[in-house]
Design a protein around this nucleic acid. Structure first.
Length: 777
DNA sequence: TACTAGCAGTGGTTT
DNA sequence: ACTGCTAGTA
């Protein structure tokens, strides 16, 4: 057994795997097989007799945890692998916190707020304190509170800390501490934690409760942490406390890939590991198995520009490989087209598949143009970005119903759904209920039960409706204890009237919303099935489903390993992944590195690490693209090519820029730069692509003059009533697609359309004048 | 109470 | 460019 575990490891990997006890730091460069080392270590631990239930392994994404679990299962068997305490920081700690919820003053059924919930709760707090929302912007206040929590600063401490108070006063926001305090009180009363509370409360539990510390820290004989460079102070402190007794803590990370400072990550944690644990053993994995020599060397030359780092020299064991290519384009549309064309060319030349490609970008908003270009060329893609499905209003409504059933004291969810669909409980009634709640120091849900509720100015009719709503939720809460999430979800969608409300709306958008709710209900079914794989008679409560959804991350969505598509994602989401061919788009100053007022040297170093992550995702080839002008927030912007392009040693670049090429090209009419020549001399009007043949697109764009303009007559205006969700249409700019949502007015056919081209939900939203080809009914 | 036209603000990465 | 809010109207 031992043989097979370490068999395929190289010398340095094997040493790192076999050093099982005491504090261990593994500095693992990109592509050096750190996941293998981690999984092998865990397998070896189990093989040597450590109980899997005593091993704690923490990652930042569910996907990473899931992947590792799978590999370990292959080595030591499903049964043992299942007993591992392996998961994201947040999900593992939530499980522990539920056991100790009463100690902390929470119900063990506490629910978890996503960012959206938190923002509206904060907004409510700001209003209650009669502060100006213009000065106290909810998002900003939230991020301030979030930072405080990540640094273990409670609401109390925040108000007392002189430095913090001075900063807030200097920023003319002296009342933030009151918002923090109120928000905290609100969350506690509602039985709710936000993301940061999970870590903060875990700290408070371990710090203030000796018994809990003994019990929990005693349970984990071995601790392993992935991506240690991304831990923040809260996580760091938890790890210190948990590792205190057994001292078997193994952290793996790469300081060059620390890219989460904005959410409190401290690169110092990994830099200082040797100081924290003087008796540690340190291993370095510097052999890169992923990328070509050119890519590794280019990345090295880039990251050498950072001051703050652990010196190390990564080297590739692979082939020399081809040099990095630069592609300059006129604007973001052309950039996207050139990427699409290059992908096609590469596929032809090297028999590559769609899934061999990734297009990376700094900001999510860049994905849209790329999508349009890929769609026009019939290239299947998958956007791994914000959970846009879970952010849709109707989905959030349904989720709020579920959250409310699991935790009726969640005022935020209560407010959200109490009058959805309209039940005649309007602002006036709600205000009366809220004042009743305030006077009695209870939640809105509890206030529904107050005997003399009329005293607060509620009319008899409204009172009846409120009671009815209360009883409805209370009934479901009871059922939630014993029933499965699939049936309960369905019953809730029907019983609340939410599903019917959308279903009855015969407009296209109504149907689409109903469909999205069905989709959510499907996912409860799927979740239940997965959970029941082991034991089909097990109950899968709604609470578990909600928790799962709340802790979902970007990288977790659409794992679809069987789906062969081009991957579109932010560089952040790409961390930990690899692709044969990588395109990094938007390589411009003010975008990558992201500009604005945040440009201290530290920030630039973080951006550089981010770019380092991007480059090291590639196995075979990297293409960097940038545009001379780019539409941003409705304005045309011109930015110079990114300084990072210059920072890559020129011998690794096929067509390096000359000094004068780094100048900013101003405006759409500016003279074209000389090198490198873009393939297209002028942006092609988008509609020219409608008739683009499937794979002949390259020839068409390069050699042929623009295809004749398609006369408008070929597009027949279709009355909105005739459009249906799921209908296939031809759009004059975006080509063929399926309608998933339409809003707008009939007379001028101004519509908002979501194309659902390849069956994914993450797609294009667009205002446009729309003309349709005749539609097959 | 529900709907909508018009307006102002935003702008970045995520558990 | 687009979203989300407000104020005004039915």
């Amino acid at each position: 057994m031992i043989e097979s575990i370490v068999k395929d490891l190289n010398e340095e990997q094997r040493l790192a795997v076999e050093c099982l006890d005491g504090p261990v730091l593994i500095v693992a460069g990109a592509g050096s097989g750190k996941t293998r080392v981690l999984t092998s270590r865990i397998a070896l631990l189990i093989d040597r007799g450590a109980g899997p239930e005593h091993i704690l392994a923490l990652t930042f994404t569910k996907k990473a945890a899931g992947g590792m679990k799978e590999r370990i299962a292959a080595m030591v068997g499903q049964e043992k692998a299942r007993k591992l305490n392996m998961g994201t920081f947040h999900s593992v700690f939530v499980r522990i916190l539920r056991d100790y919820a009463d100690v902390l003053g929470y119900p063990s059924s506490f629910t978890i707020y996503d960012t959206g919930d938190s923002v509206s709760a904060i907004k409510a707090c700001i209003r209650e304190l009669r502060l100006d929302e213009k000065i106290y912007k909810p998002r900003e206040v939230l991020s301030r509170i979030s930072m405080a929590k990540n640094n273990l600063c409670t609401a109390d401490a925040y108000g007392r800390n002189a430095t913090v108070q001075m900063n807030d006063r200097a920023a003319r926001k002296p009342e933030i501490f009151r918002i923090y305090a109120l928000y905290d009180r609100f969350c506690r009363q509602s039985g709710v934690m936000d993301f940061d509370d999970i870590l903060l409360n875990m700290n408070l539990l371990l710090r203030d409760n000796e018994d809990a510390l003994r019990e929990i820290a005693g349970r984990f004989t071995h601790i392993l942490v992935d991506e240690y460079q991304d831990t923040n102070l809260a996580q760091y402190t938890i790890l210190r406390m948990l590792g205190r007794f057994h001292r078997n803590i193994c952290v793996v990370g790469d300081d060059s890939q620390s890219i989460y400072a904005f959410r409190g990550a401290r690169i110092e944690n990994i830099l200082n590991f040797c100081k924290d644990y003087p008796d540690n053993r340190t291993f370095r994995l510097e052999r890169n198995y992923r990328s070509t020599k050119v890519i590794v060397n280019a990345a090295n030359s880039l990251i050498a520009n950072n001051e703050n780092r652990i010196p190390k020299t990564c080297s590739s064991v692979g082939e020399e490989g081809e040099k990095i290519r630069l592609v300059r384009s006129f604007d973001e549309q052309e950039e996207a087209r050139m990427i699409a064309t290059a992908i096609l060319a590469r596929m032809r030349a090297e028999h590559a598949e769609y899934k061999d490609f990734a297009v990376l970008y700094r900001t999510n908003s860049q994905s849209r143009v790329l999508e349009e270009a890929l769609r026009r060329m019939n290239l299947p893609y998958m956007v791994y970005s914000g959970n846009s499905f879970f952010e849709r209003a109707e989905v959030r409504d349904m989720l709020s119903y579920m959250k409310l059933v699991v935790n009726p004291n969640d005022d935020e969810s209560f407010r959200r759904v109490v009058n959805k669909p309209a039940r005649g409980i309007g602002d006036t009634s709600l205000a009366a209920l809220a004042s009743a709640a305030r006077e009695n120091g209870c939640t809105l849900f509890e206030a529904c039960r107050i005997a003399d509720l009329e005293k607060y100015g509620l009319k008899a009719a409204a009172l009846k409706k409120i009671k009815a709503f209360h009883d409805f939720i209370a009934g479901f809460s009871q059922r939630a204890e014993t029933e499965n999430c699939r049936e309960l979800g369905k019953a809730l969608a029907d019983g609340s009237g939410l599903y019917a409300y959308f279903k009855e709306d015969s407009s296209v958008e109504g149907q689409s919303r109903a469909a999205n709710i069905e989709e959510l209900l499907n996912s409860t079914a799927l979740f239940q099935e997965q959970r029941q794989e082991e034991d089909p008679s097990a109950v899968v409560p709604l609470a578990d489903f909600i928790e799962d959804i709340s802790l979902l991350s970007n990288a977790d969505t659409g794992d679809g390993d069987d789906s062969n598509r081009i991957a579109l994602m932010t560089v952040h989401s790409a961390k930990g992944l690899e692709f044969p061919y990588v395109f990094i788009s938007g390589m411009e100053e003010n975008l990558f590195p992201s500009g604005g007022m945040l440009s201290s040297e530290n920030d630039v170093e973080e951006e550089r690490r981010l770019f380092y992550v991007a480059v090291t995702r590639a196995m075979k080839a990297v293409t960097l693209t940038f545009a001379d002008t780019r539409m941003r927030n409705g304005r045309h912007e011109s930015n110079a090519p990114s300084r990072f392009i210059r920072e890559i040693a020129p011998q690794y670049i096929a067509n390096p820029l000359r000094r004068e090429d780094f100048r900013r090209v101003r405006g759409a009419d500016a003279a074209r730069p000389v090198a490198p020549r873009p393939v297209i001399s002028r942006p092609v009007p988008s509609r020219a692509d409608v008739s683009a043949p499937r794979y002949g697109a390259i020839e068409m764009i390069r050699n042929r003059p623009l295809p004749p303009k398609i006369p408008d007559e070929e597009f027949v205006p279709v009355p909105m009533e005739r459009l249906k969700v799921g209908q296939r249409i031809e759009h004059n700019r975006f080509g063929a697609g399926l309608i998933t949502e339409i809003t707008g007015k009939v007379p001028d056919l101004k519509a908002r359309i979501t194309f659902d081209r390849f069956g994914d939900k993450l797609l294009l939203l667009k205002y446009a004048k729309i003309r349709f080809e005749s539609v097959a009914e």
